[in-house]
């Protein structure tokens, strides 16, 4: 009965039409395959990357890796100082970048009047987000290491990283604050709250999980960054734990970089083991971020 689709038609015309549709459909399904193949390449790349690292690194992933300081001999080398350095750096960086970043976001969303100053600050924030991280290294080297004479210290590193992650925190905090419905602000103002009380008690609590998600993203970014810390001269051979913020230090990615740049393959395996540790840390952070994100969506 198909031939009658729909009004009586010249069978020749109908046949041509069917052929035309068939060829268009064929294009659709073959291009679909191509699109799927392209998407699979991304997934495949991730699998290959993880497989390479697991194959190379698993054998070196021993308790000794966490107990030992770096050493000339691969067998007794570990990343104790790097792991501790990374944790210390994050602990100093988070409060600094959190306060400044969230403060800036509150200003932009709640206080700033529309005008050229606001526009410039907003443009500035998005510009900063696109500055290559190595340029932050140059900045940290000039301002903190030499200018403020903080030397190649933990504090220099943490301050440089704070500036680097600032745009990440500001932008995500802005998004989180923007997502809080205006009805909540109105309700608070109508109860006689001042502007700041409203921000503090009605807006921020609702926005907090979203803000924290941004902070976690910032931390994930910071613990993987290598180039800026190479610039400010975080050392590659640190056989002690930093005592105070002005001590010299090293971090995980720098230790990994150091091992990669050695010619012996035993060191490469150590690097892979270090990468596994780094990736596990990132995975945990990401899981926390996902949980927070779900909480945030429920809160709104």
């Amino acid at each position: 009965m198909q031939e009658q689709l729909f009004s009586p038609k010249d069978p020749q015309v109908l046949k041509a039409e069917k052929l035309q549709i068939a060829s268009r459909r064929k294009k659709d399904s073959s291009l679909k395959l191509l699109f799927i193949a392209a998407t699979s390449i991304g997934i495949l790349a991730l699998i290959l990357l993880l497989a390479t690292i697991l194959v190379d690194g698993l054998s070196s992933l021993t308790p000794d890796l966490f107990k030992n300081y770096p050493s000339r001999r691969a067998a007794s080398s570990g990343l104790k100082s790097a792991l501790v350095g990374t944790i210390y750096m994050v602990l100093i960086m988070v409060p600094i970048s959190f306060l400044i970043g969230v403060g800036a976001a509150i200003f932009m969303q709640e206080y700033a009047k529309k005008g050229w100053i606001t526009k410039i600050i907003q443009l500035n924030i998005s510009t900063l987000a696109g500055v290559p991280s190595i340029v932050y290294g140059i900045l940290g080297l000039t301002i903190f290491v030499r200018g403020l004479q903080l030397d190649r210290s933990l504090l220099s590193g943490a301050l440089t990283m704070s500036l680097l992650v600032l745009p990440v925190i500001i932008v995500s905090a802005q998004e989180a604050i923007k997502a809080v419905p205006n009805t909540r602000r109105d309700a608070s103002l109508a109860l006689g709250a001042t502007k700041w009380q409203t921000v503090q008690r009605a807006v921020l609590p609702s926005a907090l999980p979203g803000i924290l998600t941004g902070v976690i993203l910032a931390v994930s970014r910071a613990i993987g960054e290598t180039a800026p810390l190479v610039m400010i001269g975080a050392l590659t051979y640190v056989a002690f734990l930093p005592d105070n913020v002005l001590d010299q230090f090293t971090v995980m990615p720098i230790q990994i970089y150091n091992w990669i740049s050695k010619p012996q393959t035993e060191f490469h395996d150590l690097a892979a083991a270090g990468i596994i540790v780094l990736l596990v840390m990132l995975l945990v952070l990401n899981m926390i971020a996902v949980i927070l994100r779900n909480r945030f969506q429920k809160n709104l």
């Binding site: 800036a104 200003f107 410039i120 500035n124 510009t127 900063l128 001042t194 502007k195």
Partner: peptide
């Protein structure tokens, strides 16, 4: 608080501008 907070918050936002100025000046 109504007077001081906006100023403090503005200073936070201004740090991001200072960062850019710092980068440009240094380079």
């Amino acid at each position: 608080a109504e007077y001081t907070m906006p100023v403090l918050l503005f200073l936070c936002a201004f740090i991001s501008v200072l960062t850019t100025i710092g980068i440009v000046y240094t380079l």
